[in-house]
Amino acid sequence: MNSLLEVRSGPAYYACRANVLDTLDAKLSKGNIGKVLIIHGEKSWKAAQPFFPSLKNIETTFFTYSGECSDSEIERVQKAALELGVDASAAVSCSTSPNRLETRFIRISSSFQLWLPPVLHGHL
């Protein structure tokens, strides 16, 4: 077998507590992430925006995805991430596939899995 099979069994970091998003700036900085692409859908951003912290130390670009996890949409997100030169991509409760993006990936979710409470988790 000449191809590489990469397995990521779960997030490298998982946090669950009140106001967990308030730690996002520090966690990104600690991971040497200075520039991040925040990927979100319209509905997910409407729900998350009131709770999303101001990232003072992180250059942030917000990107609305189309609401579907198609090959063309993943390519569109990937192109934006590469053009912006981001250190990481973060998805706010959307289905963008982290394995298809060529940046470190963070998922910010309250509904990632039905049995999980609101969390901040990702591959930092």
Results as ranks from 00 to 15, higher is better:
Ser66Trp: 00
Glu68Gly: 06
Ser109Trp: 02
Phe62Lys: 11
Val77His: 00
Glu42Trp: 12
Pro11Met: 09
Ser110Arg: 01
Glu6Asn: 13
Cys94Asp: 02
Ser111Pro: 04
Arg107Glu: 04
Val77Tyr: 02
His40Asp: 02
Phe52Asp: 07
Ala48Cys: 07
Trp45Leu: 06
His121Ala: 10
Gln49Cys: 03
His121Met: 09
His40Leu: 04
Lys46Asp: 10
Ser89Thr: 13
Arg107Ile: 12
Phe51Gln: 13
Glu73Pro: 01
Leu114Pro: 01
Gln113Phe: 09
Gly10Pro: 03
Ser70Met: 06
Asn19Tyr: 11
Ser54Tyr: 12
Ala91His: 04
Leu114Arg: 13
Ala15Pro: 00
Asn32Gln: 14
Leu84Thr: 01
Thr23Gln: 15
Glu68Ile: 10
Phe63His: 15
Leu28Val: 11
Ile74Thr: 14
Ser54His: 15
Cys94Tyr: 00
Asp87Lys: 08
Glu73Trp: 04
Phe63Val: 11
His40Ala: 04
Lys79Pro: 08
Leu116Ile: 05
Ala90Gly: 06
Phe105Leu: 05
Arg104Met: 00
Ser111Met: 11
Asp25Ala: 06
Gln49Pro: 01
Asp71Val: 10
Ser3Tyr: 15
Leu82Glu: 15
His123Trp: 08
Gly31Ser: 14
Gly34Glu: 07
Gln113Ser: 08
Asn19His: 14
Met1Ser: 13
